[in-house]
Lab assay of single mutants.
Amino acid sequence: KAKLLVLLYAFVATDADTICIGYHANNSTDTVDTILEKNVAVTHSVNLLEDSHNGKLCKLKGIAPLQLGKCNITGWLLGNPECDSLLPARSWSYIVETPNSENGACYPGDLIDYEELREQLSSVSSLERFEIFPKESSWPNHTFNGVTVSCSHRGKSSFYRNLLWLTKKGDSYPKLTNSYVNNKGKEVLVLWGVHHPSSSDEQQSLYSNGNAYVSVASSNYNRRFTPEIAARPKVRDQHGRMNYYWTLLEPGDTIIFEATGNLIAPWYAFALSRGFESGIITSNASMHECNTKCQTPQGAINSNLPFQNIHPVTIGECPKYVRSTKLRMVTGLRNIPSIQYRGLFGAIAGFIEGGWTGMIDGWYGYHHQNEQGSGYAADQKSTQNAINGITNKVNSVIEKMNTQFTAVGKEFNNLEKRMENLNKKVDDGFLDIWTYNAELLVLLENERTLDFHDLNVKNLYEKVKSQLKNNAKEIGNGCFEFYHKCDNECMESVRNGTYDYPKYSEESKLNR
């Protein structure tokens, strides 16, 4: 008799109507990190870190770059004969040098303040090359056809396309004075040089004057150069050297050249137009028929994500570079809930034993079982409120962090190594801060989002509990077992918050 009662009780308990509160689960393989956990499985997430590029040089917003090819900045601007293909260059979106560009200054020497000139050019998007001192009329008392084997072109001695090597005419090199007034309405880049012979005999042979000088002056520039005559090792078949100089001439300003020898005179100059998204990159990537809004030396990035880990040097509207390998923000729920887990921000989770793959029309909802059958029903209101809140948060985070910009490298010469090392340390410090901030932001927001979901499920549970009161009992896994019969209409009233407690209280009292 006792065995019969136990079996009867078990049958009745199993047959009781139930309603459970749960949440969506799926077959997603997404994982995120939080402050407290690593690799948390979630139903949905968004990636904030771009880690792919196309490996190509592309047009930037429809404008092609200027590819210097086998030449570098120095060779292009001075007019190395091997860089003749660059003479027609007028406009570009950015400038590309190759790491091993070999054609710079063909006659050995240095372009002074080269690093600063590169910085200036990094904001130039177009130029006009014009004859600042016409070759045939500007130097009537001097020979202007100086050439050298060091600047050979097609097997013949030649010289820079933008400079003139002035030497004596006959047996004399009379003092020369020439000036140019900038009437271009924009900055003009003027380049010139000073020749330093290897011996007094060479000085006399070329310029006749043993104590020659070169003077260059404008409103913002004033220097006097004296040739340094000295024996030097042979470089590119030359014992002599040429140093090259430049200045930016403001609109309306005048530049005056005065010399008694050794002047490498300007022939062509450049009127410059600035462009905020221009820059110089060093890259071996090849040019393709493609378009982008962000270019790196590795390749083009076409992404609206706020961060990238491809390269710190970028041109155009680019994500911020960070050292992170993963920045994924959760938008959905835990896919593998932890039992009795309390989140960092106070939300209680884990009283549900598992997510439901059968509930596909919402994030949170119900599963019921009664004599009429069983089924899932999503709670659309709480789901939609959660979707709206999380979507707004993700968009806000992306908008705040998605300050796209150009980031170019800084140039230092060989004598500025300590400054370069200090600059690298400062840049590394800023990069570490950006990386830390980005990672911390994602970790915190992921923790908040998961706790937010847990709290929403808990609130749904409490909503049902407050309606049923003692007409049902909690069975410990997020479910309630009714003390009365609850048909589909009754189940719907529980879900929509209109459950009639008094209607079922007498039946429940008897069954309790």
Rank of each mutant, 00 (worst) to 15 (best):
N27A: 15
E250K: 11
E50Q: 05
R236N: 15
L176N: 01
I95N: 02
E116I: 08
W246L: 01
R236A: 05
S101P: 13
R236L: 15
A13Q: 14
E187Q: 10
T34N: 11
K59T: 10
E115Y: 11
P65E: 05
S101W: 07
H153G: 03
L78S: 02
N39P: 08
R224M: 07
V46Q: 12
R223G: 14
D237S: 10
L8D: 02
F225E: 04
V40G: 07
I112F: 13
R161H: 14
V188K: 01
E277D: 15
Y23C: 10
R90A: 09
L49N: 01
I112V: 01
L87P: 01
H53G: 04
C58E: 12
E102D: 02
H24A: 14
K234Q: 08
Y244A: 10
Y180T: 02
L263I: 13
E136T: 12
P266H: 06
S158Y: 00
N100Y: 07
Y213D: 03
L78Y: 09
T31R: 11
E50R: 08
P81I: 04
F130P: 02
V216Y: 07
N103D: 00
I63P: 00
T282H: 11
N27E: 04
L86I: 15
C20P: 10
P251G: 11
S215E: 00
A231F: 15
R241V: 09
A64K: 14
H44F: 14
T226A: 12
T254I: 07
E131N: 12
G104A: 13
N80V: 06
S205R: 01
S45L: 13
S152L: 13
E128S: 13
S45Q: 05
S215Q: 15
F225P: 00
R224A: 09
V190S: 00
S172E: 15
H53K: 07
N211V: 13
H44D: 11
K61P: 00
G279F: 03
D33Y: 12
S122T: 14
D201Y: 04
E102K: 07
A259C: 10
L189H: 05
Y9W: 05
K184L: 14
F11I: 10
P197R: 06
G279C: 05
N162L: 00
G185N: 07
H153M: 02
R241E: 06
E128Y: 12
T148V: 00
P227M: 05
Y207D: 08
L49V: 07
L248P: 00
N243Y: 14
R129T: 08
A2I: 08
F11P: 04
Y207K: 05
F133W: 10
E187N: 07
K175P: 12
C71A: 08
K184Q: 15
R154M: 10
P197K: 05
L8Q: 06
V12E: 15
W192S: 05
V124Y: 03
P233E: 09
E50W: 03
G185E: 14
V46G: 07
R154D: 03
K1H: 07
K169L: 09
S150T: 13
P227E: 00
